[in-house]
Design a binder for these strands. Structure first.
Lengths: 367, 367
DNA sequence: CGGATCTGTGCAATCGTTTGCCCATAAGAG
DNA sequence: CTCTTATGGGCAAACGATTGCACAGATCCG
């Protein structure tokens, strides 16, 4: 990918693309030097110019329809006022709200975002970082972090400011904004325990992701405190964060221990996958097994059953990450070395209830 | 916004940012001129150089960790190999799959995408177009089109290649890739009619959007053919494409005519909003009223009731739009003047059933 | 009235790549 | 042995904006 940007030679220089007026054209129109125009156009350097001149330049720029060429400006200033956002899968409903938060915060400071979607492919993620670096963005927000993520080294090697959002790298060399996953899982468990559950299992997200790992650890820690809980704790790891992985993990879990009365999942889609599997197995949620999700993605209130889940502050998380990155970019080191951890909430809906007095007759064969 | 890109002066030129090797550094290392390096790095211009030299340049570039500065290259070539995508609301589940289609097709041709989200705000959309133009992107894909959209004039004035996806401008000055909305609505109506419905109403999307308008028109045309249908056709226009707008529109519709037995909505979220309202009103869907959505967004299969809807080819639509745009950018005018219309499908689920009062058992005349 | 201090602008050098044009050297032709 | 004709690469001028420095004229001070 050293040369992703070659002119394919298909458009000639004499292309019909309109000639865009440059700072020189404006200068000519006003009868001053280009540098003067540049200064007049920049509010921060305008001070030393006469008000009259500034007004004339502005007027001329307006009538000519002048727009500054961001490419040229960035090349010269080494600042693009743009940051890249790397997302594993934009179709996962967790990310759009985070993205909105990022955009809102960036816009407030005059930055724009460039979003790259990697489809959970680490090679594509690497390429995305390379491309965004090649375009000289001012920084990167990574929502893709694995627990040990090579992107960290890449960013560090390229001297590219970066922050993690939602996930983070275990080496902690890059600041992050995350939700407190251990606390979130604990909320779910406390809720289930209060309902009377003891045989609570966990369907974990991929352990290479920081969220999957942290939530699992939170589960194991919290369950260690629960009297009468299975030892060791019951955990099945899903292959991905997708609905069908949840389906599959549910079947594995039931094969492992058919007596579970509640499942804490690492993500809403996994939870929905469990519901799919239960429906197929003619089990009822929450009558037979209670299920909790994680993230509180949209529409969870009208699926069947409405899913009890842990809500995280997506928008705020994105906004905080963006603000942090800008601080780093602009050398306000105030926040450069900090991690921000937001608190999650539990949203109780219909997928959790007290366990049956006698465990349901499960139709799945025991191994 | 003439100057979104000013250096805020917060990072000095002597910043600790690593010195990135340039083509000159590579040239020095190999002992040739920078122009030679440039040629060696470009497969298409490599022909006139000796194989040996090319190999040495490549090796030197590799060891120095050279990456071409896309900014500088774009400035010189006037090509950025990047296209902008303007989306009204990324949290609307319709758009991520379209975006994926766009990205996939772009990537296949070596382009990258820059996504801007406008939050349904036409002023922000304008600013986005300005910014992307300022960054000299090669083209724009617009998913925001209103029926009479000022962005069209803006793109045309700036000489910026553009295509519409999912929506389109009525003036038809910009090519588009859309789904056949009239056909889609007709599918829904035929299905309902086959079930025995006659008093079918429509909850339309905002009439300023091309989709809202086209689906409404499709509804009116198709209903004109239905014997025993209300005259004039029953239509309520929702304020936005959001769930609560659907809720509200449903109440208006019922106030207007309490006897409807089926509702064709312009969008899944509107349909879900209707379901919300029905639940509150202790009405049952589909027993009391059948409802169809539009778009087949994710999770519709597990909401209650599972929604009958019109599926459109999101991914393909995005991909086709991207391919079309690239054709235009690269002056292959083959497709420049065409519109592409994809065919929708009906997905029958649980939200539609025979009307309650129907005396005879109606056989499902459905494929 | 000479010199010091401002003010307002122009000059020219960057930023890093690309490419039209020209010029060596070598090879082949006559 | 001289004259073309390829080859292989160097030169320098773009692309468009920014900015340190210089400098002319105006203002001010003693």
């Amino acid at each position: 990918m050293r040369n992703g940007l070659r002119n394919k030679g298909l458009r000639r220089y004499d292309s019909p693309m309109k000639h865009r007026p440059t700072v020189k054209d404006v200068a000519k129109a006003v009868g001053v030097h280009a540098s003067t125009v540049s200064r007049a156009l920049n509010p921060e350097k305008r001070g030393r110019l006469s008000d009259d001149l500034v007004a004339r330049v502005l007027a001329a720029a307006e009538t000519l329809g002048y727009r500054t060429n961001a490419l040229a400006a960035s090349l010269r200033t080494r600042r693009s006022m743009a940051v890249g956002v790397i997302i594993p899968d934009i179709t996962n409903p967790v990310f759009p709200p985070i993205l909105m938060g990022i955009e809102d915060a960036l816009r407030a400071q005059g930055y724009i975002s460039v979003v790259a979607n990697t489809g959970n492919d680490s090679e594509r993620a690497r390429i995305a970082v390379e491309q965004l670096t090649a375009r000289r963005l001012d920084g990167l927000i990574l929502a893709t972090a694995l627990r040990r993520d090579p992107l960290v080294d890449l960013c560090l090697a390229r001297g590219m400011p970066a922050v993690f959002v939602n996930r983070r790298d275990e080496t902690r060399r890059i600041p992050s904004v995350v939700s407190d996953d251990e606390a979130g899982v604990q909320l779910a468990i406390e809720h289930l325990v209060a309902l009377g559950h003891r045989r609570i299992a966990h369907i974990a997200g991929p352990s290479i992701t920081s969220t999957g790992f942290a939530r699992r650890r939170g589960f194991e820690f919290a369950m260690a405190e629960v009297d009468g809980a299975p030892r060791p704790p019951l955990v099945v790891e899903a292959r991905t964060y997708g609905r069908d992985s949840g389906h599959q993990a549910f079947l594995e879990l039931l094969a492992l221990n058919p007596k579970v009365t509640a499942i804490v999942t690492s993500n809403d889609l996994l939870a929905l996958g469990c519901c799919d599997a239960m429906r197929e197995a003619r089990l009822s949620c929450p009558a037979d097994i209670s299920i909790t999700g994680y993230n509180d993605m949209p529409l969870l209130d009208i699926v069947t059953p409405p899913l009890t889940t842990v809500r995280i502050q997506h928008h705020e998380m994105g906004a905080e990450a963006a603000r942090m990155l800008i601080d780093i970019i602009e050398n306000r080191e105030r926040r450069a070395a900090m991690d921000i951890v937001l608190k999650p909430d539990l949203v109780v809906r219909g997928s959790t209830a007290a366990p049956r007095a006698t465990p349901a007759k499960l139709q799945l064969a025991e191994p």
